[in-house]
Design a protein around this nucleic acid. Structure first.
Lengths: 335, 335
DNA sequence: GTGAAAGCGCTAACAT
DNA sequence: ATGTTAGCGCTTTCAC
C-alpha cells in the first residue's frame, strides 16, 4: 500500500520506536537520529496513518457537529452554516477535525447518533437542543463523551450555549421605547420555538421596566414571511390599534411590515419605528433600511467549540453555560 | 476502557472470529451462534470500534468536503451550505460520513490538504475548483484518492461537476427575447469569476441565436449589491441607452435595479423586464417579484457525492463531467 | 538515546 | 460452521 513507519525506520537505519519518538516530538532523541528520520521521511514522502495513530493513541482529534435534518430550516439555512464556520474556525486552530452528521429527530436518527457516540471515532459532540433528549444525554454520559448543546435550558447540569435572545428582545424594545414608543407590537413566528419565547420575555421585561403595560392584542404570532408581516399591519390598521412601534423577530417579516406601513402612508420611523433581528442582507434592501439586533452566530459556533475543547482537555467535569451577547445596529427604521 | 469484541466473544462463549463474522453479516454462521452473539452484544451494549475496524479494513467510510476559507463569501454563504446538505444527503444514504475542512488558498492550506490526502483517513474528496491546482491534483493522483471538483474545467481528465451556468445565461436571455426585448443589458459582478463568464457566454449565445448584436455598452460589470444595481440603471438612464431588458446574475443587484427603474417611472416588466439567478427569498421581496433562473445547488452537492462514491467503488478510473440543469422560474418581472 | 516486543480492537486467511 | 493466529500501522513500556 503506502509507505509506513517501518519503511522510514529501515531507510533511516533506526528502529520504529525512534521514528515514532520523532513524530511525537519526544525530547529524548539524538539530533543525528532526528535528522536522519526527517530526511528519510522527506525522501519517502511519508505521512503517518491517521487511523493507526488513533488506534494506538485512543485519540481521533475529531469532533462531530450534529444537525437536526428536519429543522435545518428553523432559522433559515444560514444559521447552521454560520455556526459551523465558527466551529470550524475554532477547531482548525487546535488541529481538530470536524465531522458533520445530520440526523432525523426520530428513532432512526437516535440510533445513528448512538452509533456515533459509541463508535469512539469522535472526542466530543456539538448538538442542537432539539436533539438533546434524555435518552441521548444519558448515552453521552454513559460513554463519557464530552458534549455541548446549542440552545438554552433550565437544566444546568450540562454544557450549553445560546444567543442571548432575551437580551435581544429587551434591547430591541428598549430602543423603541427610548425613541418615544409606548404601544409596541410584536410580530413573531410560532411561540413553540424557544428563541421566540425568549425574545418575547425580553420584550415584556422592557415594557415592565418602562412602566408600560403588556397588551395581548399587540402580539402577532405566526408571522413567517413578508406577506404575514403585511397582513399583521393590515390587521392593526383595520382594528385601529393604537400601535406606535413594531418589534419583529424575523427580517422578511419586518420587510413586509415596513412595506405595508409605507403603502398605508404611515411613515417609518417617524410614525411607527420598526426593529428586527439578525443582520442579514435583507435588512439593507428595505426602504428605509432596517434597524436590527444583530446576533453573532459565528461567535456562537466558535464558543461552542471552545467550550467543547476545554471540556475534552479538562476532565474535572465542570460545566459551562453561556449566552452570546447581541448588539444593537440602528439604521433608518428607528428613531 | 469500553467493551470490545473479546468481551462479547467471551460472554457468548464463541471466538472473536465468530463475532466478527456476525458483525459483517457473513453467511456462514449458525443461527444459534448469531443469536447468542446478538444477545451478548445487547447485554454488554457493545459497539464495534470504528477506528480498529478502519485499520483492519483499510476503509474509513468517510469523505471530505473541502471549503476554500477565503472564498466562503463568493456566492454568499448559502451556496456552500446547500452543496453540503446535498452531499450529506447522498452520503448518509450510503452510510458514509462527512468530514469538513476549510483550508486557506495558500501554502499552509496546501499543507493541510496534503496531510489530509496522505493520512488515509478519507476515501475520497470533494473540493472547489479554486483549490484544484496542479500541485493538489498530482497529490491526489499519487495517493490514488478519488476526488471530484466543484466547478467547470476544460480539463476533462478528472471528475468535475458544475451548474450549467452557460445554459442559465442562455435561458434568461431567451426569456427576455421571447418577451420582445431586443437590447438587453447584463448586470454582473467581476468577470474574474468563472460563473460570470459562463453566464455571459450564454447571454451572448442567446443574442446570436436571435440575430441580435452584442453591444459592449450594455454590459455592466462590478455589480455586487443593490446599490450597484441602482447605479447601473441610473447610468443607463443618464446615457439614454435604449435598453429594453436586463439580465442580472445576482438577486440583490436585480432588486436594486428594479427599485431604481420603478423610481424612474419605468414599468417592470411592461417597459423593461428583469430576470436574475438563484431562487432565494430576496426574489419574493421585490416588487414586482423577480423572475429567476433557479440553480439547484442541493442537487449539485448530491450529484458530486454520487460521482465520488461511484468512483470509489469503481476503480476502473473512468471520469465523469457533468452540468446540473437550471430551470426558468417566471414571476412578475418578466413578460 | 535506542531497540525489541507487546498491545490498541478488529479482520481474514488458514486450519479443523 | 468455528477457532487460531497473524496482521493492519502506530505507540509505549521495558531493558539495555
Amino acid at each position: 500500500m503506502s509507505v509506513t513507519i517501518d519503511d522510514v525506520a529501515k531507510h533511516a537505519g533506526v528502529s520504529t520506536a525512534t521514528v515514532s519518538r520523532y513524530l511525537n516530538n519526544s525530547p529524548l532523541i539524538a539530533k543525528k537520529s532526528a535528522e536522519k528520520v526527517q530526511h528519510s521521511m522527506d525522501v519517502l514522502n511519508y505521512q503517518p496513518s491517521f487511523i493507526a495513530r488513533s488506534l494506538a493513541n485512543h485519540n481521533t482529534s475529531t469532533i462531530a457537529f450534529i444537525i437536526d435534518s428536519a429543522n435545518t430550516e428553523t432559522y433559515g439555512n444560514d444559521y447552521f452554516l454560520r455556526i459551523q464556520y465558527g466551529i470550524e474556525a475554532a477547531l482548525g486552530k487546535q488541529g481538530y477535525y470536524l465531522l458533520i452528521i445530520s440526523v432525523a429527530n426520530n428513532k432512526t436518527g437516535e440510533n445513528n447518533l448512538k452509533k456515533l457516540i459509541m463508535e469512539g471515532r469522535v472526542e466530543g459532540i456539538i448538538l442542537p437542543m432539539a436533539l438533546a433528549k434524555k435518552s441521548i444525554l444519558s448515552m453521552l454520559r454513559e460513554a463519557e463523551l464530552p458534549f455541548v448543546v446549542i440552545g438554552r435550558s433550565d437544566d444546568k447540569s450540562f454544557n450549553w450555549i445560546d444567543l442571548d435572545n432575551e437580551m435581544g428582545g429587551l434591547l430591541a424594545t428598549q430602543k423603541l421605547i427610548s425613541g418615544g414608543s409606548k404601544r409596541i407590537a410584536l410580530f413573531s413566528s410560532s411561540a413553540e420555538k424557544s428563541f421566540v419565547r425568549e425574545r418575547l420575555a425580553g420584550y415584556r421585561a422592557a415594557l415592565g421596566q418602562a412602566g408600560l403595560t403588556f397588551d395581548e392584542r399587540f402580539i402577532f404570532l405566526g408571522c413567517m414571511n413578508a406577506e404575514d408581516g403585511e397582513q399583521a399591519v393590515q390587521q392593526i390598521l383595520a382594528k385601529q390599534l393604537p400601535i406606535d412601534g413594531i418589534v419583529c423577530t424575523d427580517n422578511t417579516v419586518a420587510f413586509g411590515a415596513v412595506r405595508a406601513l409605507t403603502n398605508a402612508k404611515m411613515a417609518v420611523p417617524a410614525q411607527i419605528p420598526v426593529i428586527t433581528f439578525d443582520n442579514s442582507p435583507v435588512t439593507e434592501l428595505s426602504t428605509p433600511k432596517l434597524s436590527v439586533v444583530d446576533i453573532d452566530v459565528f461567535q456562537l459556533g466558535r464558543q461552542a467549540a471552545n467550550i467543547l475543547l476545554s471540556s475534552i482537555e479538562d476532565t474535572s467535569g465542570s460545566v459551562q453555560n453561556s449566552l452570546i451577547q447581541v448588539t444593537l445596529v440602528p439604521r433608518e427604521s428607528t428613531r
